[in-house]
Amino acid sequence: MPTARIASGHTAPGQGWQAYGANGIYIDVDTTAARFTGAPVYVTSISSTGGSQWGLVGPSAVYDVTATRFRVYVQWRDGSPLAPTTAQQYGWYINWIGYDNP
């Protein structure tokens, strides 16, 4: 019988962010190293090396969950334009913890 597995990690600061329309960005988070076998439950937060993440919405919502990856979309709380260059400038990154109970 498989045992439950817990793992954690984070993305590289400022790297991997992609545009999602004019007002949002997203990042695909690779969790392959965790060696999950099911569809884990992921808990996320956003951090930075340069600040300004306090004005974002979305960093705790995960989408497209698999054993090896998930996606996070973020945008400014006020809906103003947001581009990947902003995430790069502030060094935003996603922290994650995953729990897999196959």
Rank of each mutant, 00 (worst) to 15 (best):
M1K: 13
M1R: 14
M1G: 14
P2M: 05
P2T: 08
P2F: 05
P2S: 08
T3F: 12
A4Y: 11
I6P: 09
I6M: 15
T11N: 00
T11M: 00
A12C: 07
A12V: 13
P13E: 04
G14V: 03
G14R: 01
G16D: 03
G16H: 02
W17L: 03
Q18I: 06
Q18D: 07
Q18A: 07
A19D: 03
A19N: 04
Y20T: 13
G21L: 00
G21C: 00
A22C: 05
A22V: 07
A22L: 06
N23Q: 12
Y26D: 05
I27S: 05
I27M: 06
D28P: 04
D28W: 05
V29M: 05
D30W: 10
D30P: 10
T32G: 13
T32H: 12
A33L: 08
A34V: 03
F36I: 10
T37I: 12
T37D: 09
G38I: 02
A39R: 14
A39E: 14
P40I: 02
Y42G: 08
V43E: 12
V43Q: 13
V43W: 11
V43L: 14
T44I: 00
T44C: 00
S45A: 06
S45V: 03
S45W: 02
I46N: 01
I46Q: 00
T49V: 07
G50T: 02
G51E: 04
G51T: 06
G51D: 04
G51L: 03
S52F: 11
S52D: 15
W54G: 11
W54A: 14
L56Q: 05
V57A: 05
P59V: 03
V62I: 03
V62K: 01
Y63A: 13
Y63E: 15
Y63F: 13
D64R: 12
V65T: 15
A67V: 14
A67I: 12
T68M: 07
T68W: 07
R69W: 10
R71M: 01
R71W: 01
R71H: 02
V72A: 01
V74H: 01
V74Q: 03
Q75K: 15
Q75H: 14
R77L: 15
R77K: 15
D78C: 08
D78L: 07
G79V: 11
S80E: 07
S80D: 07
S80M: 05
P81G: 10
P81E: 14
L82T: 04
A83R: 15
P84D: 04
T86Q: 11
Q88L: 10
Q88W: 07
Q88C: 06
Q88M: 09
Q89K: 11
Q89P: 06
Y90K: 12
Y90N: 13
G91I: 08
W92M: 02
W92T: 03
W92G: 00
I94L: 00
W96K: 03
G98F: 01
D100F: 09
D100E: 10
D100C: 09
P102F: 02
P102C: 04
